[in-house]
Design a protein around this nucleic acid. Sequence first.
DNA 1: AAGATCCATAACCAGAAAGTTATGGATTTA
DNA 2: TAAATCCATAACTTTCTGGTTATGGATCTT
Lengths: 107, 107
Amino acid sequence: MSAAPDLLFRTLADPTRRAIFERLCREGEQTVGALTLRSGVSQPAVSKHLGALKQAGLVRDRHEGRQTHYSAQPGALNPLVDWTSQMAGFWQNRLDALDDLLKRMDQ
Amino acid sequence: MSAAPDLLFRTLADPTRRAIFERLCREGEQTVGALTLRSGVSQPAVSKHLGALKQAGLVRDRHEGRQTHYSAQPGALNPLVDWTSQMAGFWQNRLDALDDLLKRMDQ
DNA sequence: AAGATCCATAACCAGAAAGTTATGGATTTA
DNA sequence: TAAATCCATAACTTTCTGGTTATGGATCTT
């Protein structure tokens, strides 16, 4: 199985980090400074969160002069979607199997 | 906005706990003892994880004599699906907006 | 060139969290 | 009734993690 969901879940588990990612999704590319302003934490904390998001593939960075622009990379959420539908799928399969069983018993 | 995704992400971030949930999804209802066997951790640890999963609404428990049966509640994953598609949606909206802008400029 | 700004990294601290062993209540078995 | 089994909780330890302040390199401004 892919180890991808693990890193994604761990990365998105922190509220501050997830809020940063959400802002990037909603509002598009932002500099570290802009993100820091409404994050409620210090600039180094934001930088660290951005590093974690980047390592999980959830954001990209683009250097421009002395500032760094970050943007969301929502395709990185795909393993999460896959995992979720897989879980739902297992569930559904077992329901189907039960259904089949009941039908055969009914005959 | 709903605080639901937060608890879900936090709960599913732990690999051991997620593995337990996955097994319940794949194989259906299990007792604590059965889950403990292939979990790699002690029985109290499994009980604690099951408690966390239950609090997040991801599992149900059913008492039968001295054993407790747990089963997955995959509907609890819905807020996760919602959150994910919302993020993807924001992204798409911004792409559309950009597209519109370019079209208008093109005129 | 000097000063200011932006950001990343280092070093450190405190609280959260996952694991353990010990224990006890409830139920089943002998 | 006595012993064994199942599970949850308590108490404790250790590790991980998110936060801070301090600092420095790079770039922009004056």
